[in-house]
């Protein structure tokens, strides 16, 4: 067992883990932080996405011991029921889910993706690699392609992410 310190949704947490424990299992099974979901456990679905030191990451493909000292933000830590994060609100506004299983991962992924786009990161859908990317629907689809939705709520997810992107742009201008 290895002693570990993590900041999870703003709270400092200490735990002893077996070295083979993934960050996802440490969060869900040891710390009872259940908003990141286990869809595939092999990096293929995105439902375990969290913000790890600020960047969207798959918690099923990293060992908890490798993240000693890290700051983890899950969808539950982004906002509260009375003060939703703009991305959470956008998913509600646009019905960006059906069963909701993929949603915490979608929300974290969208938050991370919008930050990447704001920093000018290109994507596979970007025509001009040297220009600042514009979040067209094709760009959003490509950038969110690491999050599968078994219910097929993609139309709502796209609309939600576009609303949040618009809000983020408006804030930037203000």
């Amino acid at each position: 067992m290895t002693a570990l310190r993590l900041t999870v949704d703003g709270a400092e947490r200490h735990l002893d883990v077996d070295t083979r424990t993934t960050l996802l299992d440490a969060l869900r099974e040891r710390l009872e932080v259940t908003s990141p979901k286990k869809g595939c456990d092999h990096g293929q679905c995105g439902s375990c996405t969290v913000l790890l030191d600020g960047r969207r990451s798959l918690s099923c493909l990293t060992l908890a011991v490798a993240q000693d000292g890290a700051e983890v933000v899950t969808a539950a830590g982004l906002g509260s029921p009375d003060a939703l994060h703009p991305v959470q609100q956008a998913f509600l506004d646009h019905d960006g889910y059906q069963c909701g299983y993929c949603t915490p991962g979608q929300v974290c992924s969208a938050v991370g993706m919008l930050a990447e786009a704001a920093q000018g990161h290109p994507s596979h859908a970007t025509d001009d690699l040297e220009a600042d990317p514009e979040l067209t629907d094709a760009e959003v689809r490509e950038r969110m392609s690491g999050n599968l939705c078994r219910c097929g709520a993609y139309a709502g997810i796209l609309a939600a992410v576009q609303q949040a992107a618009g809000a983020a742009r408006a804030e930037e201008r203000a």
């Binding site: 995105g46 969207r56 596979h124 690699l129 392609s145 690491g146 999050n147």
Partner: peptide, 16 residues
């Protein structure tokens, strides 16, 4: 180099 990287995996995996 940029295009081959961006054609692979997903945004999350490329961050890791």
């Amino acid at each position: 180099l940029a295009r081959s990287l961006l054609a692979g995996a997903s945004g999350q995996i490329r961050n890791q």
